[in-house]
Simulated scan of single mutants.
Amino acid sequence: MITQGYDLLDLRLSEITGLSGLSFVGDDIMINGLNLSNREILSSSVLSYCTSLKYVRKAFSNPKVKALVITASMYDELSDAERQSRSFIIDEFPESTFYTLLIKLSDSHYPHYTWKTDIKNATVMDGAVVEDGVVLGENVLIGNNSVIKSGTIIGNNVTIGACSVIGGEGFQLIKDIRGMNMSIPHVGRVKIGNNVSIGDNSTISKSLFEGFTSIGDYTKIDNHVHIAHNCTVGKNSVLAANCTLFGSCELRDNVWVAPNAAVMNRVVVDNNAFIGACSFISRNVKSGARMFGVPATNIDE
């Protein structure tokens, strides 16, 4: 049973490039995952990509990024020391090539959680589906027609309403080299803490590359709430009906999000903040702030 969410691969770079007939420059290093270079990375050694020289140099500041997919022109601009600091896959379309590798690896090498889920301490209502590879704590209630996807970890004393989906695919798209929409598989997971309640028709998507979309202890989630991939919700927070968390945003502890509010991707909402109904949060929110409007502003300032 796998409960950690990082170092999901254990492959040489040559094994990865061999999946698509690619070549590489530099050492044949071990790769433990794929990820974006501008994110916090848990895995020890990752393959990433860059679409401009500016971002290549930023990627060099992330010690977890050991290999990059870049164009030949970007590689030619690097100093000898920069070339020696990483391994490189040289390709005309770095983004498309990177995500094509992720698609291939998601099928063949990323973990698939196949153990038989133990539901003896859970109440699973009619029509609900708990897939193999789920970890359930004590006293878990799963409502009618809800689906708990493989890889999800659920703590003790958790209630999930009807018709909710926990651990499903997130929504990540890129344009392929023809300009067509390309859906990207997610290889991460969802972790729900203790004493959490989740209402009806709510969705929590699994993380994209590694780690977890996570919900902290004692958090209460209403009906029709969407929490996108890689979000983090702290302890004792409240998400009211129809609110939306965009991908990779963070709510810290004791945050209250009122109905129909939305939090933009990668925004951090600090402890004890209040987000008013129908508000749109487009920038970080400081501790204790009361935010209202579109875009939201702090009504106490």
Rank of each mutant, 00 (worst) to 15 (best):
K64N: 13
M30G: 13
S23C: 08
S37K: 02
S20F: 15
I299K: 13
L34K: 02
D200L: 05
I41F: 06
G155A: 06
T117I: 01
M125D: 15
T244R: 09
W115G: 14
G137F: 06
N35M: 04
R83H: 00
C163I: 12
I160Q: 05
L251W: 04
F209G: 05
I29V: 09
I90C: 00
I227H: 00
Q172R: 09
L8Y: 03
G247L: 03
H229N: 03
H224K: 12
D80M: 03
H112R: 15
D200Q: 07
R12W: 11
D132Y: 02
S96N: 15
G5Q: 04
N298E: 15
A241K: 12
V257P: 05
I221M: 10
A122S: 13
C231I: 06
G155M: 09
L68I: 12
I174W: 06
V190D: 03
Y75Q: 03
G188Y: 00
T114N: 15
L68C: 10
A261K: 04
A262Q: 07
N271D: 15
N195Q: 14
D7I: 11
V269A: 04
S287T: 10
S73L: 11
F209E: 01
N272W: 11
V187T: 01
A273E: 04
V255F: 11
K64Q: 12
T219A: 05
V196S: 12
A261H: 04
V238Y: 08
T159V: 13
V56S: 04
R57S: 14
L13G: 04
S282G: 13
F212T: 01
H224A: 13
C249I: 00
F93E: 14
T232M: 08
K220T: 01
Y110M: 07
S73A: 08
I89M: 08
S287L: 03
G167M: 01
S52P: 02
S106M: 07
L22T: 07
K120C: 08
N236T: 12
K220E: 05
C231Q: 02
S37A: 10
G247H: 06
I89F: 10
R283G: 01
L102H: 14
F98K: 03
S164V: 05
I299L: 11
V225C: 03
S61C: 11
M180S: 15
N242D: 14
V130E: 08
I29A: 00
F274A: 01
N230S: 03
C243P: 02
S282A: 13
L78F: 10
S106D: 08
H112D: 14
L34D: 04
D10P: 08
D118S: 02
R266I: 05
I29T: 00
T51E: 11
D126T: 14
I31V: 14
V56I: 11
I103H: 15
A122F: 03
G137I: 02
N144R: 15
